[in-house]
Simulated assay, not measured.
Amino acid sequence: MKLDGYDVDPGDLVYDLFFGDGIVRNLTADGRAVVAFGPRAFTYNESGVGQHGKRSLYWHNPILLVPMKSETQWGLQRALNQAIAQTLRPGAN
């Protein structure tokens, strides 16, 4: 299993938008990751989608900045962040 182009392995540290810091417990036969958050554990697919039906699992907390109110300024922030992410993402170049 990969998450954002990187291999997911048992013991990896990850971050869920709802539960915070977690650790990959194991991988399932169907290519999902079981992630533990203290005594609770949830299963995620390669898109980082778990029980909430929308992506919530990332390698780190994805919130890096406070969004701007202006749609124009927010659009610029998003474009810059996406350009940086594409440059750093494995296989992007």
Rank of each mutant, 00 (worst) to 15 (best):
G50Y: 01
V34S: 00
A29Y: 03
G38D: 15
S56A: 11
V24L: 11
F18Q: 11
D30P: 03
R32A: 05
G48Q: 00
R40P: 00
N26P: 02
S47K: 15
V34L: 05
G50A: 02
Y44Q: 02
G20F: 03
G22C: 08
A41V: 10
K54T: 07
G22R: 07
I23M: 13
P39M: 14
R55D: 00
L27F: 06
A29W: 04
G53A: 08
T28V: 06
D30F: 15
Y44F: 15
G20Q: 12
R55P: 03
A36I: 06
L27Y: 01
G31Q: 08
Y44A: 03
G53I: 01
N26C: 08
V35F: 09
D30G: 00
G53H: 01
N26Y: 07
R40E: 10
F18D: 12
F37I: 05
Q51I: 04
T28I: 10
E46S: 14
G48A: 02
R40I: 13
T28L: 12
F42S: 04
F37H: 10
P39A: 13
T43H: 10
V49Y: 05
E46I: 04
G38A: 08
T28A: 14
S47P: 09
F18W: 15
R25C: 13
Y44C: 01
F37T: 07
S47T: 13
V35I: 05
G48S: 02
F42H: 10
G38N: 11
R32C: 11
G53E: 05
V24E: 05
R32Q: 12
S56D: 00
G50K: 03
R25T: 15
F19V: 08
V24S: 02
G31M: 06
F19S: 04
D21L: 14
D21M: 15
E46A: 14
N45L: 03
G50H: 00
D30R: 01
S56T: 13
G53Q: 09
V35S: 10
F19K: 15
S47Y: 11
D30H: 12
A29T: 13
V34W: 04
H52Y: 00
N26D: 11
V35H: 04
R55H: 06
G31S: 14
F42L: 09
R25Y: 14
G38F: 03
A29R: 10
Q51W: 10
A36C: 09
G22F: 00
E46R: 15
D30V: 11
F37Q: 09
S47Q: 15
F19M: 14
A33R: 03
A41N: 04
V24P: 02
V35Q: 09
F18S: 11
H52W: 02
R40K: 14
T28D: 06
F18L: 13
A41T: 12
V49Q: 06
K54R: 10
N45H: 02
V35W: 05
P39G: 11
F19G: 02
A41F: 06
V34M: 09
G53T: 01
K54A: 08
H52N: 12
D30I: 10
F19E: 07
R55V: 09
T43L: 10
Y44D: 07
S47C: 11
A41D: 01
R40Y: 12
Y44S: 01
A33K: 01
A41R: 13
H52M: 06
S47L: 10
R55T: 07
F19H: 15
N45Y: 06
R55S: 07
H52E: 04
E46F: 14
F42K: 00
V24I: 14
P39Q: 15
F37K: 11
H52R: 12
D30Q: 09
F37D: 12
N26G: 02
S47R: 15
